[in-house]
Design a binder for these strands. Structure first.
Lengths: 201, 201
DNA sequence: TGTACATCAGTGAACGCGCGTTCACTGATGTAC
DNA sequence: TGTACATCAGTGAACGCGCGTTCACTGATGTAC
């Protein structure tokens, strides 16, 4: 069915990006083809280049979208809590849940793309998008750790965030094995325990 | 130069596996072709199937080799220290170094392959090799944390190992940015600080 | 508002390319005498 | 030890396939009158 309305075409583009933002997170930046993305959007591949300059351009836009969605979700959750430490826990609990592990398509783009970024060229646009998104998420997380000791807070934020990324990555890699749940559980209770020496005042 | 000696053929196979164990870690399990591996071994691609049943079979053997090398290196380092906590630090320091970040081909296979494992099928041979290798490395690491509180030790080991994997992964993904060094530094000093609440007795 | 025509979003065949894999071939190696 | 021949490790062309990308085509949309 050729020549849909301009409004429909814009909507189609949106559907493609939404499908891509999910699929790239699920299968990696190299694990999905243009045909796959277009099929997931209910279209054939030929129309792709009417919407995007290249596969790479879509990957960049879709990964950027994933970061925006994550940042928005984090900010919503933070806004729902008065206390910063309560808000921090409200981020960590779902982040390190089985649901998060089992639904990479709707979860953290940092974990989804970090592996691919290791092999990405230095000046690549994908890398820039990743760095911008990571910095935004990390700053948001860091703003929840404030004890007055700036250097200490920064280190705490770096350590806690690295642990979250490492635990979710390992939980996904070991999915199906008992170790996977153990890792999530250990990291979660460590980061949210009242008595945790990591927990800010 | 066809028909080399049997001894030379065995040596060639060894060179292929060694090249693969480095290249797969550097560029990921899907980032390298049979032609690339054979060229790195100084051979042409045609002879590949005289040595291996398939590309996948080589990936499995090469990743298994990477795990063996890591386990052997860890055990050497541990054997060089009397004190378990000193040994633990002797593992962590080089693990979270710039050298480790910049030479993935000779570094931790868990970090190198975790991203790919997330997209690997459940019963896959690659996944089994990964799980076996991860369990071996993790048990070795866990043996260095002994306070008598078994549950607590297990959680400590899981948390510390997840942090190591997350920090190295993020450091690689952000390589070239100041954040990369910051992450390594923060995780390293956190895990090795004398006053660290994480450090076993 | 209705008509005539230009526009252009989506289709599906086709392209060149790199990949994993196969195979006929070569000639040094290994073996039987 | 020397000779004749079978074996087989490595070569490079070739295969089928999936990929990113291009393009002629279609027919509903949008626009000019």
């Amino acid at each position: 069915m050729p020549r849909v309305s301009r409004k429909q075409a814009d909507l189609n583009r949106e559907v493609i990006v939404e499908a891509a933002t999910r699929l790239f997170r699920e299968r990696g930046l190299h694990g999905i083809s243009v045909v796959d993305v277009m099929a997931a959007a209910g279209l054939t591949h030929g129309g792709f280049y009417g919407h995007f300059e290249s596969r790479e351009a879509l990957a960049q836009e879709a990964s950027g979208r994933a970061f925006e969605q994550s940042a928005a979700r984090w900010k919503e959750r933070i806004a729902a809590h008065d206390d910063k430490d309560t808000a921090r826990r409200a981020l960590i609990e779902p982040y390190l849940s089985a649901a998060s592990r089992d639904n990479p398509g709707e979860s953290c783009p940092v974990v989804a793309f970090a592996g691919d970024m290791c092999h990405e060229a230095a000046g690549s646009g994908l890398r820039e998008t990743f760095m911008d998104g990571l910095n935004a998420l990390f700053d948001t997380f860091g703003s929840l750790i404030e004890t007055g000791d700036n250097d200490g807070d920064r280190q705490q934020a770096l350590v806690q965030y690295s642990l979250m990324v490492g635990a979710l990555t390992l939980a996904r890699a070991t999915r199906g094995d008992a170790l996977s749940d153990e890792i999530l559980q250990a990291a979660r209770s460590f980061l949210t325990a009242d008595s945790s020496p990591l927990a800010p005042v």
